[in-house]
Write a protein that binds this DNA or RNA. Structure first.
Lengths: 236, 236
DNA sequence: AAGTGGTCTAGACCACCGT
DNA sequence: CGGTGGTCTAGACCACTTC
């Protein structure tokens, strides 16, 4: 059972996507939502906060909450970690496994995973395509003691859905380091580009809620097809 | 007068940076902070939420709030918009003005600023250096009707501090689109790289609290010296 | 002045972690 | 089981926008 504020956030998000507020671009007031859903104003505010963080709306004190012009599906939204499928809903998203093996952490992986060299890990390499265009190549390592089981069937689909739903893994937070570099020859072939073209790289480190690292990955993105979007509020 | 939750967040942040929690890596409990600062638990939670979003700490239900290993000063943290000076505190940050003029929006700028072609704007081009290494080249346009005044002296320092503190401009939120491309010849010279090397680009659109766009910019970053960090929680 | 979002409180109860 | 974070409430008062 999801908490109320999440349910309400999803409700309002659906309304936004369905252009319910199109005439004025303005949401209902907080008091109106409180009455509508029979919840307290603070719960309404928590719901709206989620939408603010996702970049759907902005708040103006004394005035209201307004819908933003939003970037439909050309960007990878850095606020939504669920992966490509949610960013590119309505488009064809495909995953091609390129490698899958059980091995042990070499020095580089051990350093990124903060574990000893030789720790057992799963290695997965996958090519992702959107609308039949190569999108990114992804090298992932999963710590075997934490993910317990993986197979070739699972990695064709969403590894994360499997870990969350079937393995009940409590995924907590993630760091992503974003940078540019020369495209390696091996990846150039897969992305249908040339060696030493630019590449947009993202190094991921994913933690369980208790702070343990269970996954590190590096995604090499097609520089022409991939742009990342970060929305920010000037608070904090 | 900053709100309590912000003040407390800054207090705790200072404590973290000064290694006050180093022995256990664990913050005080929410109740302890509530007593310590004589505030309600909800206010403590708002303060801690800020630190979570900045990537300083993570929360474990039933257990406590823990300090993360943090990435001292090698990354541009996408959660902190204040600019380079705060990301690279303790390092030499320099800004060299390359161009400053009053002009009008051409088609590209008008499109990005969602304003008519011909709208009066300030154009600013600056080179940023960190520890004497070229870091990025930045092309910015400011909508003249909203920023009112700028001069060559201001753009040497922090334009944003000036707009916020002296002009009392209410800066609200920003979009950043991050991507990779070939480095242009003109920027290669400034960054001491070669034409067609990779470049890490960031297109910025900055809004006032009322939703008006007052600044658009494009930063071309040195691919070897710049990495961006995004920390995320798996909530929302 | 009325409307609407922003801050803050005090307290209740639940969910999860550890002993 | 006790400790600690997560959700939620009802209400007060402030700050800003709009008319």
């Amino acid at each position: 059972m999801a908490p109320k504020y999440k349910q309400v956030a999803e409700q309002i998000e659906t309304d936004i996507v369905n252009h319910v507020y199109q005439h004025t671009n303005k949401l209902l007031t907080e008091d109106e939502y409180a009455t509508k859903y029979d919840i307290s104003r603070n719960t309404v505010r928590k719901a709206i906060e989620i939408l603010v963080n996702k970049g759907y709306v902005y708040q103006v004190q004394g005035s209201g909450v307004f819908v933003r012009d939003h970037y439909n599906s050309d960007y990878v939204n850095l606020e939504k970690l669920q992966g490509l499928t949610s960013d590119f809903s309505g488009r064809k998203v495909e995953t091609r496994p390129l490698a899958f093996e059980q091995t042990t952490a070499n020095e580089e992986v051990a350093e990124r995973m903060k574990c000893p060299v030789g720790t057992p890990v799963y290695y997965v390499k996958r090519l992702r395509l959107v609308d039949d265009h190569p999108f990114s190549v992804e090298d992932s390592y999963f710590r075997k003691s934490l993910v317990v089981y993986l197979d070739e069937n699972i990695i064709r689909k969403s590894i994360y859905n499997y870990l969350r739903n079937d393995q009940k893994l409590a995924i907590g937070f993630a760091d992503r380091v974003i940078y540019a570099d020369f495209l390696k020859a091996e990846d150039a072939v897969l992305l249908e580009l040339k060696e030493n073209d630019p590449a947009l790289l993202v190094d991921n480190t994913v933690y369980l809620t208790n702070g343990q690292i269970f996954d590190v990955s590096r995604a090499t993105h097609h520089f022409k097809h991939v742009k990342m979007l970060k929305v920010s509020n000037i608070k904090s």
